[in-house]
Amino acid sequence: MAKAKRIKQEPIILITNDDGITAPGIINLVEAVKDLGKVVVVAPDKPQSGMGHAITIGSPLRLHAFHQFPGIEAYQCTGTPVDCVKLAVDKVLHRKPDLCLSGINHGANHSINVIYSGTMSAAMEAGIESIPSIGFSLMDYSIEADFTAARVYARKITQQVLSKKQDKHMVLNVNIPAVPQEHIKGIKICRQAYAKYQEDFMERQDPHGRRYYWLTGEFMNFDKGKDTDVWALNNNYVSVVPVQFDLTNYVLKSKLEKSWKH
């Protein structure tokens, strides 16, 4: 007697972001992958850029149905990007999705930005929860940014990840240069560049004469390697950096184990 064929289930894809559920980036991401699985959107109800891995513990969270994605179950959340992932798994899906996508962020999340990024923290939270995840960012902060190329590469990379079983803690940080699609040379697997912001606080006065400060800064790349995300983006490649939530410095750990007195 022939064995019954197992019917392959449609993957469940959770989509979130940090720019808010009405941002063009998340609308373009949904459009890019909506036919690759059952898409469910849970995203902040307002911009949450720079929130990092913040969670809400001092006030209640609320979820409201959002009906702007035709045929797709979607909710806006009063919390952070990380809150969105936690609530989606526990209260919306009642199970772990097969993949979590975060973005498409308006602006860079290369190099040190991964530490501060709400987009990447949502992806990282999924990884912590044993859900393979990808954070997508376009190197254009404008609300009128052209997401044509970003849609194409978000779809390509999502298809690649869905094509075979991935490590359950896989987290990819994907950045897309803000150039026309025909100028993008392809995809490069990279390491995170050593770079940071040279920060400054502009001091001003409000109408009542009270001082306030506005954070500014200049991006400084100290890494001249040609295998970094900054190099790839500067040379019109889409950068893909595998990242992890284990922050242990294993090289230093090994040195300290040999050199420190116990």
Rank of each mutant, 00 (worst) to 15 (best):
I26P: 03
K38E: 13
I21D: 01
S137A: 15
A43V: 01
G71L: 00
N109R: 12
F66P: 03
N105E: 10
S142T: 12
A126W: 06
K86T: 14
E125D: 05
I55V: 15
G25H: 10
P44L: 02
S102K: 00
H53N: 15
K164M: 05
A65F: 08
S133A: 14
P97W: 02
A65P: 14
A122Y: 04
V40I: 15
A126C: 13
A126T: 06
E129W: 14
E125Y: 11
V39P: 07
K46C: 07
E129V: 09
L36A: 03
A65D: 09
Y75Q: 05
G52W: 14
K34A: 01
I157L: 13
K156E: 15
I72S: 02
I134C: 06
G37W: 03
T56Q: 04
A74C: 10
Y116A: 14
T158V: 10
Q159R: 11
L93D: 02
I104F: 11
M139E: 13
P24R: 11
L99K: 00
H67G: 13
E73V: 09
V161N: 00
M139H: 14
F69D: 05
D19G: 07
S121D: 06
R95A: 12
A43F: 00
D90V: 10
V41R: 00
S111G: 08
G127M: 08
H106Q: 15
V114M: 08
D83P: 02
G20T: 02
A54K: 15
Y153S: 09
A154Q: 06
L101D: 08
T78V: 06
S121K: 01
C77N: 12
G103R: 05
E31V: 04
E73S: 09
H64V: 14
G20D: 02
A74D: 03
F136P: 04
D83I: 00
A43Y: 07
V89R: 11
Q48H: 12
D45F: 06
V41Q: 00
G50A: 10
L93H: 06
T56K: 06
A54G: 12
M51C: 14
K91P: 00
L29S: 01
I115D: 12
T80C: 01
K96L: 07
I104T: 11
A74Q: 05
Q159Y: 08
I128N: 14
S130E: 14
T56W: 07
Q160M: 13
A150D: 09
L93F: 09
T148S: 15
F66K: 04
I131T: 11
L29A: 03
H53P: 13
T80N: 00
D45P: 00
M124Q: 15
H53V: 08
K164H: 09
V161K: 11
G107R: 12
V161F: 08
L29D: 04
S163H: 09
A123I: 02
S117M: 04
S117I: 01
V33M: 09
I134A: 10
S111F: 07
S133Q: 10
F69Q: 08
L87D: 00
